[in-house]
């Protein structure tokens, strides 16, 4: 049987209809709005995210794919450690691992024989849930998704997740956030070559966003929220 084209794989992964649990997340948007950020700041916030938090995730996925392509399963722990050291907020680590679980379930069903997927399944079974970015990296390795496209996919998915959540939280013309998503992707574009070139865990971007991290922690303690994170 012919495999699906890698672009089809990318579209599948970026599709909000993907049954991986992404609909329960707002990519930190609900925490930001509940934390007092005005809706008018969302476009600038999306651009900030696309050039900070999203790049940490993207670099993690890229390095995971490289480590797994070299059949270096033991390198996975190093990638997870680098990601965790770059993700100081426990609420964000927890959210990423929840998403990772959904992604892993999907990856295991779709590409069960691929060594990269088997490696993450075995790692998760032995050491606990893996963050989404690591599972995405395994899918990239399994399907041949190029590093630059892995970065773009991560940035897009993050921005689109927030944009979709915004429409559930605030009444506004649905066309507006579509523009903001593309603007965020454009802002990340100059960073794509650098992030796609990451080879070792040390090279993964460490761009932090303290305000988002603070909002995430406060949000995790709330009982009245629409999204998990």
């Amino acid at each position: 049987m012919t495999s699906a084209h890698v672009l089809s794989v990318a579209m599948l992964l970026a599709d909000a209809r993907l049954p991986s649990g992404g609909h329960a997340h707002s990519a930190s948007l609900e925490p930001a709005l509940l934390g007092g950020m005005p809706v008018a700041a969302v476009p600038a916030w999306l651009v900030g995210r696309a050039t900070t938090a999203s790049l940490v995730e993207a670099g993690t996925a890229v390095v995971t794919a490289r480590v797994l392509a070299m059949a270096d399963d033991s390198g996975l722990a190093g990638v997870v450690g680098a990601w965790a050291a770059r993700t100081p907020a426990p609420a964000l680590r927890d959210a990423a691992r929840l998403l990772g679980r959904g992604y892993l379930r999907l990856a295991r069903a779709l590409w069960p024989e691929m060594p990269a997927v088997r490696a993450v399944v075995a790692h998760a079974a032995a050491h606990g849930p893996l963050p989404r970015a690591v599972v995405l990296g395994a899918v990239a390795a399994a399907t041949g998704l190029p590093p630059a496209d892995t970065v773009r996919l991560t940035v897009y998915d993050d921005a689109q997740t927030a944009a979709a959540a915004l429409l559930k939280l605030e009444p506004l013309d649905p066309v507006a956030p579509a523009r903001w998503v593309l603007d965020a992707c454009a802002a990340a574009e100059p960073h794509v070559p650098r992030v796609a070139a990451c080879i070792t865990p040390e090279e993964i971007p460490a761009s932090g966003s303290p305000q988002t991290e603070g909002w995430a922690q406060a949000h995790a303690l709330l009982s009245q929220r629409l999204f998990r994170a």
Partner: peptide, 13 residues
Amino acid sequence: ELTAAGEHPVPGV
């Protein structure tokens, strides 16, 4: 690695 510029405040950072 935090990057900030007083003239260009970024929400979330």
